[in-house]
Design a protein around this nucleic acid. Structure first.
Length: 430
RNA sequence: GGAGGAAUGGCCGAGUGGUUGAAGGCGGCGGUCUUGAAAACCGCAAGGCUCGAAAGGGUCUCGGGGGUUCGAAUCCCUCUUCCUCCGCCA
């Protein structure tokens, strides 16, 4: 959610910067809704002022022992008029909120303008892509052959876009969770959180999934509960409706959670393997920081995620998303894309974003800042990124570390977690 | 699931219908004193919205929502959360 005053004051500038992001005409819709609401608010406040003044006079008269029937009568009339107008003010309020909640965040000045992913900018590449003296297999072939992942039985239990992991496949998933959490908590200074995997509507609104993206979520029937699509939701909302002390910042949080996504509208995309699932596991990084430091913190958070890829020896590239490809709530996003030899392409494995005040305003996360001798509250900036998506890390390891004999070598960084050096042809650790 | 109790500003805690947006204490900030600090003393401090060039007004907010009343932190209804006791339970 953008600040309405800011929007009013920088109307034309914002209009230009949202060119590739906002639906056509929405800013003019805002201007109209805003003007109408302000006119109505000003009127009703004048009436309230009159009512308050009259009531005060009633009290004074009564204490002086006089009756005040005429004043009471006048006040009653004003009251009735206020009543009449309240509904329309509320409607105008709701209309303005609705428009505001549909306006995406303004991209940072360093974000390349562009309609879609073709305008993204590759920032860097790391690692050497493995060369195979044989045709590398995609993980959905190799994983099934090894018996470490089972899509057919998953479909029987739940449906398509689910996976059952078995033997070394399940242990690899668990090892990745522990490895990532250990690095982020032990070396990068994040506090480990184990949140609920369910959130209420207010929480999903706070991080921007509701109301616009309800169709991407799973809702629990007959309740106000939603399955979380990412740990970003509970972690960022941990401090919803709170005012933090400046000394509490930056807050750095990490959590392992499953993530649930309906993937409505993604039919036909990434249908094979574990790339796009209704449930996947992820270690998430969240930072709540002062506005001055947020872009520096974005670099750090991204580097924290990159560190996992480096330790696992997975080749990747870092991409700066264009304004059109950046998500609704984000002001700037780096994607980390891992090399997948079986697929023959780079695939997103982490998305690291600075949301500036956008989420903080929705979720009402503020902090007390000192400006000179004054102490005044302001909104924090929020950031998050995957550190990393475990399902995609899993498949990246299977594909990058596959051997000619059909076994998979375990990356050095994971050997102490698995107590093994490879996944043998039977899908067991060896 | 049943029966009671509670929710006030950064924190604690007064306040049961009329200049109470809210006493007092703690904490915070500024100052006096001091070589410096502490103590003591004095002073300053809520947020949203809105009008205004500004100075400064107005309005809303005492867990959320609704109601009664000329007027609500205070009375009524409802929801949420927390606490105590009983039941059930990993």
């Amino acid at each position: 959610m953008l600040d309405r005053g800011f929007l009013r004051r920088h109307f034309e500038e914002v209009k230009g910067r949202l060119a590739y992001r906002a639906p056509a005409g929405i800013l003019d819709e805002f201007a109209t809704a805003d003007a109408r609401r302000r006119a109505a608010v000003t009127e009703i406040q004048a009436l309230q002022q009159r009512r308050n003044a009259l009531s005060k006079r009633v009290g004074i008269a009564r204490r002086a022992g006089k009756d005040a029937l005429d004043i009471v009568k006048a006040s009653r009339e004003v009251h009735a008029e206020i009543r009449e107008r309240e509904a329309s003010v509320q409607a105008l309020d709701a209309a303005l909120e609705d428009v505001l909640s549909r306006i995406p965040n303004v991209p940072h000045e360093t974000v390349p303008a562009g309609r879609d992913a073709t305008a993204n900018v590759e920032i860097s590449r790391w690692g050497k892509r493995p060369e195979f003296p044989f045709a590398p297999k995609p993980h959905w072939e190799l994983g099934v052959e090894l018996g470490i992942v089972d899509f057919e039985r998953a479909a029987k239990i739940a449906g398509s876009r689910f996976a059952v992991y078995r033997n070394a496949g399940a242990k690899l998933e668990r090892a990745l969770m522990n490895f990532m959490l250990d690095v982020h908590t032990g070396e990068h200074g994040y506090a480990e959180i184990l949140p609920p995997f369910i959130g209420n509507s207010r929480t999903l609104y706070g991080t921007g999934q509701l109301p616009k993206f309800a169709h991407d979520l799973f809702k629990l029937e007959g309740t106000d509960y939603w399955l979380i699509p990412t740990a970003e939701v509970p972690l960022t909302n941990l401090y919803a409706e709170e005012t933090l002390a400046a000394a509490d910042l930056p807050v750095s949080l990490t959590a392992f959670t499953p993530c649930f996504r309906s993937e409505a509208g993604s039919y036909g995309r990434d249908v094979r393997g574990v790339i796009r699932q209704h449930q996947f596991q992820k270690v998430e990084l969240v930072k709540i920081v002062s506005p001055e430091s947020s872009y520096q913190q974005l670099e750090r958070l991204t580097a924290d995620a990159e560190e996992i890829l480096r330790r696992l020896g997975l080749p990747y590239r870092k991409v700066l998303l264009s304004s059109g490809d950046t998500g609704f709530s984000a002001a700037k996003t780096y994607d980390l894309e891992v090399w997948l030899p079986g697929l023959g392409e780079y695939k997103e494995i982490s998305s690291c974003s600075n949301f500036e005040e956008f989420q903080a305003r929705r979720a009402k996360i503020r902090f007390r800042r000192s400006i000179g001798r004054r102490v005044s509250p302001g909104y924090v900036h929020t950031l998050n990124g995957s550190g990393l998506a475990i399902g995609r890390t899993w498949l990246a390891i299977i594909e990058n570390y596959q051997q000619a004999d059909g076994t998979v070598v375990i990356p050095d960084a994971l050997r102490s977690y698995l107590g093994a050096e490879r996944i043998d042809a039977s899908g067991s650790l060896a």
